[in-house]
Design a protein around this nucleic acid. Structure first.
Length: 683
RNA sequence: UGCCCGAUGGUGUAACUGGCAACACGUCUGAUUUUGGUUCAGAAGAGUCUAGGUUCGAGCCCUAGUCGGGCAACCA
């Protein structure tokens, strides 16, 4: 059996290296460090799955640590929600920790820093300090308080702690380097005064540590071996290490900060600030609105923990900014639900179907499979009668032979029931179809084993018996934004791209009575439509179903094709002359590269394309390519062909051109030599 | 104008210490199917941002450039 060569990401490689260099496996420890100031989203899920996944892989403990150093933004409510989400995803933490647990230790260390002359209290305004900080391109200047005596610093810092000053009056700063190219090293703040009760420490403190001071030291206290964060913290690493240097004792493990790219999802936004804006502007109903990319939103929408973990696994970890297509997320949830969801029938856009040869008072219970993917999934009963609802779009009075559904004179199967044949329609005064009349083949009942029941028909429809149907509300969701990356447009606000039709509420949908028993976390497949789950707003006499995701629909895709084609010509406005030229030379380079790999027709057509594109190329663009390395024959051939076109158009030869042709003539490659020869002939 | 990252099919990730680019999603065929789903078989699509260089050989190494992102909160 071939080994499963599962590649490991760069962080796992680092861990493997550390292990190989003598790090004891039992020293491995990770942490997931959310700030309790908002709800977790699918981007956090990447970090959760990474850290807890590493914990599982290396059998190492993982702490859930709340980075709660800013009482103005953080609340207990968020702590609870975050814990719930992490558990729901299926992960087990070793300890729940809080940065606030370390406030005393952090304070003590800060005092030591002051004593060592590595920190000072600054009483300037925030604006003045920002001014002194300089800019990324100009060095900063020292604060007038930088040289303050240790005694004075100690005194002021203690009084800060004792609450003698109003908020913002003083800060404690590390004394590092005001000229560092890294702005974060220009005497960063360690503490500020905040007169606000903390959700855990109450009014014990009125000074609070900043992120950089708290985070690395918390890692050290907890003996986290690998502290993984997102890319924007890369510049913080230098400071992280500087702070660690001040307190590190070599009997202990020294944590390492490493960075990975945050995960973006197409057609949505992922920052807490932007998600909050959606909530506050009532664009969505709340943090757990099923259109939100929050864990709670996805849960309410019907996503499973397995699907989200799978998504994280498939997305991978890397160091480059990227936008993962939602189609991957959708694939993950379909894959999971296909295996597990109970099959039922529901009609969202009903039209009445009357089976004229079925007795008016007859009712029968038919057997429906719960899940064809699961042989042990069992069955349930579905009531059948003379009058049914079917989907309006499943009927056309007449249609081409690519329409597999019900038409007049054609047969289709009613899922788990009989084969029927369309006979006639009843319309209202406006010409709308109000009833479809059909006849059924009484011998064709599903599972009856008769010859008629085995007959192949082109289509199968879902349906629900009117007399037994349960009226329910169904909510269908579309992407929240019309743009793939709504927050990537510098000139436009992401809110400009909100999809006005992201929520469709169907007040009168009908489902089979089996669904009366549905419970909150149950997952269903409404056959031929998609996956649905009960919304938390549902009550026993008013069921509400959320559509998690539709089934793949190749029929809908085919239907929309002609439209797309019509859209195309108008979609691309004429490019500017310059752009065309630039892309022409680029295009030539691209084609040329693989030129020597081609032969026969392909070669001829590549040559023709180059000649065509050459019309849009200027000598100024072409000339630099004369220097193309001799071994890059393809490119040189392309350049030669292009040159030929230009010469034919009247370009005057010069010494550069002569030299290029000369070199081509003498080249070992026959294609190049022959192109050069052709051109040589042009006067 | 400084510093730090990054650049591989439409998208996301691979390619062990250099050995002519793989997997998944998506797309397109065909078969099977009592879900136009699932499953199965197959196809198209990148020669790795550009230009030099090192090497028998470069997506991996070196140099220069281009493009994209981050950095000047008493936020994390």
């Amino acid at each position: 059996m071939a080994e499963d060569v599962k590649s490991i990401n760069f962080l796992e490689q680092l861990i493997e290296e550390d292990l190989a260099n003598g790090l004891s496996p039992d020293k491995l420890r990770f942490r997931f460090p959310p700030e309790p100031n908002g709800y977790l989203h699918i981007g956090h899920a990447a970090s959760i799955c990474l850290n807890f996944g590493l914990g599982e892989k290396y059998n190492a403990p993982v702490n859930l640590r709340f980075d709660d150093t800013n009482p103005t933004k953080e609340e207990q409510e968020y702590v609870d929600a975050i814990k719930y989400d992490v558990e729901w995803l299926g992960f087990k933490w070793d300890k729940v920790c809080y940065s606030s647990d370390y406030f005393q230790q952090l304070y003590d260390w800060a005092v030591e820093l002051i004593k060592k002359g590595k920190a000072y209290v600054d009483g300037q305004s925030a604006a003045a300090m920002a001014e002194q900080k300089g800019t990324p391109t100009t060095p900063g200047v020292a604060s007038p308080h930088r040289g303050q005596s240790v005694e004075e610093n100690l005194d002021l810092f203690e009084r800060m702690k004792n609450g003698e000053f109003e908020a913002g009056r003083y800060v404690l700063r590390a004394k590092i380097d005001m000229a560092s190219p890294n702005m974060l090293m220009r005497d960063p703040l360690l503490y500020r005064i905040v007169n606000k009760a903390h959700h855990r420490t109450g009014n014990d403190w009125c000074i609070y540590p900043m992120y950089d001071w708290a985070h690395g030291e918390s890692d050290y206290i907890e003996q986290i071996s690998h502290s993984l964060c997102t890319l924007e913290f890369k510049p913080h690493r230098e400071l992280y290490d500087w702070f660690l240097d001040q307190i590190y004792e070599d009997t202990k493990l020294r944590p390492k900060q490493r960075e990975f790219a945050r995960r973006n999802l197409s057609y949505t936004v992922m920052s807490k600030r932007k998600l909050l804006a959606l909530v506050q502007t009532k664009t969505v109903a709340g943090w757990d609105d099923p259109r939100m990319p929050t864990i709670s939103g996805l849960r309410r929408r019907g996503y499973t923990p397995e699907s989200i973990r799978k998504f994280s696994e498939l997305s991978g970890i890397s160091k480059r900014d990227s936008v993962t297509d939602v189609s991957l997320l959708e694939f993950c949830i379909r894959e999971d639900l296909n295996k597990t969801a109970t099959r039922v029938m529901g009609v969202l856009d009903p039209v009445k179907l009357v089976i004229t040869n079925y007795p008016e008072d007859k009712e029968e219970m038919l057997i429906a499979e719960n899940n064809p993917e699961d042989p042990n999934g069992g069955t349930h009963e579905v009531p059948f009668s003379r009058e049914l609802y079917i989907e309006r779009e499943d009927f056309k009075e007449e249609a081409g032979n690519k329409f597999f559904r019900l038409t007049i004179g054609n047969e289709v199967r009613l899922k788990s029931a009989y084969i029927i044949k369309g006979e006639s329609v009843v319309k209202d005064a406006a010409g709308n179809i109000t009833e479809i009349h059909c006849t059924c083949d009484p011998d064709s009942r599903s599972g009856s084993g008769t010859e008629a029941s085995m007959r192949k028909v082109k289509g199968t429809l879902h349906w629900v018996s009117i007399k037994h149907a349960v009226k329910v509300e169904v909510r269908e969701y579309d992407r929240l934004f019309l743009d793939e990356a709504p927050d990537s447009h510098g000139d436009k606000d992401f809110m400009d791209f909100v999809n006005p039709d992201s929520l469709k509420i169907i007040k009168e949908a009908y489902v089979e009575p089996f669904l009366k028993e549905a419970k909150l976390d149950d997952k269903f497949q409404f056959q031929r439509l998609g996956y649905f789950t009960l919304d938390k707003d549902a009550t026993s006499d008013h069921l509400i179903f959320n559509k998690t995701v539709g089934l793949r629909d190749t029929w809908a895709k085919q239907q929309s094709k002609p439209e797309q084609q019509n859209d195309h010509p108008a979609a691309k406005p004429a490019q500017s002359q310059q752009q065309e030229q630039r892309s022409a030379i680029n295009e030539i380079q691209k084609i040329s590269k693989k030129y020597t790999n081609l032969s026969g027709d392909k070669l001829a057509s590549a040559r023709a394309s180059i000649m065509n594109l050459a019309e849009g190329v200027s000598y100024e663009e072409l000339q630099p390519l004369f220097n193309t390395a001799a071994k890059k024959v393809g490119t040189r051939i392309g350049v030669m062909i292009t040159l030929g076109v230009l010469l034919n158009k009247g370009l005057v030869r010069n010494s550069e051109i002569d030299a290029f042709i000369e070199a081509g003539l003498n080249d070992a490659n026959e294609l190049l030599a022959s192109e050069a020869k052709t051109i040589e002939a042009i006067k």
